[in-house]
């Protein structure tokens, strides 16, 4: 009995991926590369990765072979800007500085495609946020944002994703709200979208104003979410309702 309780206690401490909260059918769609619509973007990203772009006349593939494992340890510290950077930000940076090509805006189709192509190479690997102490202040701000009430509904992320995880909001199940499946094919969007887009949805959901894409607030939340979900497998491109 003691053992069982101990085991249950341990299980509760493990983060639970949103995949486990979906129907068997959506889990199957996510797992099946021939039915997961996110794979259309992944294929686009693969083609873009091979294409020469910009004044440097280089393709991503000219400088990078495998990027396996990279997505699992982002957001990371960027020494060049002395700030945290997420995977999409890193790709934007390589595009602008190393390819010297026209910038790809956040949430643009080519940036989503490249990001999912890179992220998928880490599929199945555990989220392993870097221990870099320079990230600590921003991650702590992320946690504070997570616990801060916002919007006309005056709710914090934690009030839904910690206190009410597993309960229902209307008819939707409230998941723990992890970041291991991005970019993701959300059925509500009928398209691939980034974690920042998902965060915007949750902010708009409580009638708060959402900052513009790329804002520091998102980076801080992303850092905290990665920490909170450490150990979960990367599932990009996940499927979610």
């Amino acid at each position: 009995m003691r053992w069982l309780l101990l085991l249950l206690g341990m299980a509760a401490a493990q983060p639970r991926s949103g995949t486990q909260d979906m129907s068997r059918e959506l889990q199957a769609m996510q797992a099946d590369d021939s039915a997961n619509p996110g794979m259309l973007w992944m294929q686009e990203g693969e083609a873009l990765f091979q294409r020469r772009e910009g004044l440097a006349g280089k393709a991503c593939a000219d400088c990078h072979a495998s990027l396996a494992g990279v997505a699992a340890r982002y957001p990371a510290w960027d020494p060049a800007t002395a700030a945290p950077i997420d995977l999409a930000g890193r790709i934007q940076q390589c595009r602008a500085e190393r390819q010297q090509a026209a910038p790809l805006p956040r949430e643009s189709e080519p940036l989503l495609a490249l990001t999912v192509f890179v992220a998928r190479q880490s599929r199945g690997m555990a989220l392993a946020p870097p221990a870099d102490p320079r990230l600590a202040p921003a991650r702590a701000r992320g946690e504070a944002l997570f616990r801060q009430r916002r919007g006309q509904l005056n709710l914090s992320c934690a009030q839904c994703h910690e206190e009410r995880a597993g309960l229902r909001l209307g008819s939707a199940l409230i998941p723990e709200g992890h970041a291991n499946g991005y970019p993701q094919y959300r059925l509500e969007w009928q398209a691939l979208g980034s974690l920042q887009r998902r965060l915007r949805n949750c902010m708009v959901g409580v009638r708060a104003t959402a900052p513009a894409y790329g804002a520091a607030e998102y980076l801080e939340l992303e850092l905290f979410l990665a920490q909170r979900g450490a150990g979960l497998p990367v599932e990009a491109p996940a499927v979610r309702p």
């Binding site: 209307g170 008819s171 939707a172 409230i174 059925l187 509500e188 887009r197 915007r200 949805n201 949750c202």
Partner: peptide, 9 residues
């Protein structure tokens, strides 16, 4: 059919 929460608007 149940409905998604937190949709974009």
């Amino acid at each position: 059919v149940t409905l998604a929460a937190c949709i974009e608007s």
